[in-house]
Every structure is written in C-alpha cells, then in structure tokens.
C-alpha cells in the first residue's frame, strides 16, 4: 500500500525528478529505477497469475473432471470435456467408505473446534489479561505444535497415543487434531482478550458486577469474534488435516483427506479423486466467506469507544 503510494508520486509530479523514495526503491531494484509505478503493477499481475495457476485452475480442472461423462472420454486435444454428467458424483456418494469419511470428517471438525474453544479460553484469558514472569516463553510454547514440522509431531504423537492405547480410536483422532489446532485458537482469542481495555472491565465491577457477571456479560461477548475466527481456523484445519490422521487413525478411521490420498495413490481414479477433493474444498471456502462477512460486522459493532 505504502510503496504503491510512494511509487505513484513521481507520476503525479513529473517535474520533480529526484526523490529520496526513488533511491530507496532503486537500491534493491536498480534495474527498475525511474519506472516504479510500473513495477508495482507487475507485482500485482505476478501474484494474480500465481494464485490463478496454483489455486484456481486446479480447482476448475477438478470440477470439470468430476462432471465428465464416463461414456464420452475427455482426452487430448479437447480443452473442455465434450459431455457432462453426474455419474461420478452418484458413483462416489454411493460408496460406503466415502460417506463414512465425510461423516467422520464433519463430526471430528466441530468436536475438535469445541474442545479447542474450551481448552483455549482459560489459557487465552491468562495470556491476554494477566502479567506474569515468563509470559513470552509461555506464548512461544503454545505455538510449538505449529512451529514443529508436522511429521515430527505426527511420529512422536503416534507413538505416544499407541502407548496409551488410543491409536486407531476416535478419541485419539480428536486429541491429534486438537493438539495442532489449538495454537490457532489460543492465538486469536488471546489477541481479543488483550484488546479489551482494562477500564471497561473496571467499569463493570464498579457498576456492581460479580466476577461471574463480568465473564458472562463482558468477556464472553467481547471475545466472541476471536473465538469465531479461531473456530474457523481449527474447523478448516481439522477438515484438511492429513499426516496426523494418517498415522494415528488410519485405517480404522478415514477422513476426507486420507481417503483422497488413497484415491490418488494405490487406486488412482482421477474422477473419484476430483469429486472427493471438491467435497473437501468447498465447505472450507464457504466457511471462510461466511466468516469474513460475520467478522467484519462483528468487529464493526465492537469498536471500543474512542480508543
């Protein structure tokens, strides 16, 4: 934003040839010196192309594959399939294992989210409102599960759950998802706790509220946007989690991603894989879009006075 503004200045003042900002930009991108405006445009186009090729086109291709008519093959040099049908969707949804995986995923995700909320609230309250020695370290430790490489967490957790006789169980699956999902929740909820001015809390006590009242009437409503944002992260994380599920719960419990892996691996079926991946991706996109709208509205209505 800022660099864009700076870069536009020379265009607005063509007479003013030398500006200190030019030197700054020109230092790193010396070859673009004198044409900074064009440079920012190039960047935008590059990012756009990147998103298009890495996200949008694969999804589009998956959508197309999922609707291919099995009786009319889609092959080179056709850019689009010649004929569409719902055959693969019906076929996949008829499979018992697909429905089971979808059910498992959509039961595990809300439970993981709920467990994360319950566990994160007290932690976030302390991290966000209290002063204590080693708070910085505590905040770092909370983030460790997402700092550590997934495979490292998965291997050690798999071993641990195995010793506890919890591998290949649904509880083990929830524990695994919660462990890596909870840092996101703690992070966002802590931030919302931190954002509540102490004077607002003092005012509530001053007006006769008990500790319970303050939690119920002030803290909970004010951190709700944070819980919601964190919930979106943990829900989508749980839906799309692969490595932990694969090591801890497969083959007893299959989620959509582990099922997708088997479609892409042992029994490669592009059409089935396409259907399953859409089932996996679409809820995430919908949740994100709804969340975006809800969060905007919620944050707007919770401006903290003039602060």
């Amino acid at each position: 934003m800022n660099s864009e503004k700076n870069n536009q200045l020379p265009v607005e003042n063509p007479d003013n040839e030398h500006r200190p900002d030019d030197d700054k930009a020109g230092g790193l991108f010396w070859f673009l010196k004198g044409k900074p405006f064009k440079f920012s445009k190039i960047l935008i186009v590059l990012v756009f192309i990147l998103v298009l090729t890495s996200v949008f086109i694969p999804i589009l291709v998956a959508v197309l594959w999922s609707f291919v008519d099995p009786s009319v093959p889609w092959s080179y040099p056709d850019i689009f399939p010649k004929s569409f049908s719902l055959y693969h969707w019906q076929h996949v949804l008829k499979y018992g294992e697909v429905m089971r995986a979808i059910t498992t995923s959509f039961i595990a995700a809300p439970i993981t989210t709920a467990v994360c909320i319950v566990l994160a609230l007290p932690t976030s309250y302390v991290l966000g409102r209290k002063k204590f020695r080693g708070k910085g370290l505590a905040k770092l430790i909370v983030l460790l599960p997402i700092i550590m490489p997934g495979i490292v967490v998965a291997m050690s957790l798999g071993r641990l759950l195995n010793n506890l006789h919890l591998s290949q169980t649904f509880i083990g699956l929830i524990i695994a998802h919660t462990l890596v999902g909870i840092p996101y929740m703690i992070r966002t909820v802590t931030t919302t706790f931190e954002a509540i001015p102490q004077e607002v809390i003092d005012a509530a006590y001053d007006l006769g509220a008990s500790h319970f009242d303050v939690v119920k009437e002030i803290y909970i409503p004010l951190v709700l946007p944070g819980i919601f944002a964190g919930g979106v992260f943990t829900f989508i994380y749980s839906l799309e989690e692969f490595i932990l599920t694969f090591i801890v719960a497969t083959p007893t419990y299959r989620t959509i991603p582990t099922l997708l892996y088997s479609y892409l691996g042992y029994f490669f079926q592009r059409t089935n894989a396409s259907v399953v991946s859409i089932i996996l991706v679409v809820p995430g996109i919908v949740i994100l879009m709804v969340a975006e709208r809800f969060l905007k509205k919620e944050y707007l209505s919770s401006g903290f006075g003039k602060i």
């Binding site: 001015p197 003092d202 006590y205 001053d206 007006l207 919770s302 006075g305």
Partner: peptide, 20 residues
C-alpha cells in the same frame, strides 16, 4: 469492601462504555 459492593460510581477517562 470490593469495588462492586461499594456505593460509588465512576466516570472513566476513556468512558469505558461496553462496546457490544
């Protein structure tokens, strides 16, 4: 006596209104 039991009422510098 804790603040919530004292018969005082305070007007804060930042007003401290409940935003929600």
């Amino acid at each position: 006596i804790p603040p919530n039991k004292r018969s005082t009422a305070m007007v804060f510098q930042s007003y401290a209104l409940f935003p929600h």
